[in-house]
Amino acid sequence: MSSSLEKNMLILRSSDGEEFIVPEVVAVMSKAIKNMVEDECASNTIPVPNVDANILAMVIEFCKKHDESEAEAASDLKTFDSEFVNRGQEALYDLITAANFRDVKELLDALCQNVAEMIKGKSVHHIRIQFLGYQLFEILTSNFIWNIWCDRDFD
C-alpha cells in the first residue's frame, strides 16, 4: 500500500480513469469489492469498470451516508434515500446497473423501490412508452397477437 495513503483507505478507479479515495468500510458495502479485499486480490487501486466517474461519485456518496448514519434515526436515512434516488431516468438506470454490478444491496433496494413507485398505478400503454419505448416497433408487429390477447379485461 502506498505510503501517502492512510490506513484502511482504498482507491477506486472509474471506467474513465478518475480516482476516488474511499475508507475501506465504505468501499466494502459493495459485496464485489468486499470479496476482492477479503481474497486479498486487490492492490491499492481497485478498478471499477463499467461505472463512470459521475455515477461512481453518486454510489460513494450513498455508501458514505449509510455508513455514517448507522446510529442515526432510520427516518433520516429514509428521507436521504428518497431524495438520493429521485433522479432522471438515465442516471437512475446507470445507477441500477452500477449497484447491480458492484452488488450494493442497500442502494439497489432503494433504486428498485423508486422505479416501482414510478410504475405504480400506470396504465399498460404508459408503462410501455416509459420503460420499453424503444420496443414500440416490435410491439406493433410481432406482438400483434399478444396485444389482442391483452385486451381482455382484468379489473
Binding site: I119, K120, G121, K122, S123, V124, I127, R128, F131, L132, Q135, I139, N143, W146, C150, F154, D155
Partner: peptide, 9 residues
Amino acid sequence: TLFHCLLVC
C-alpha cells in the same frame, strides 16, 4: 399494477 405489467411485454 402487476395486472398492467403482465400485459406490457
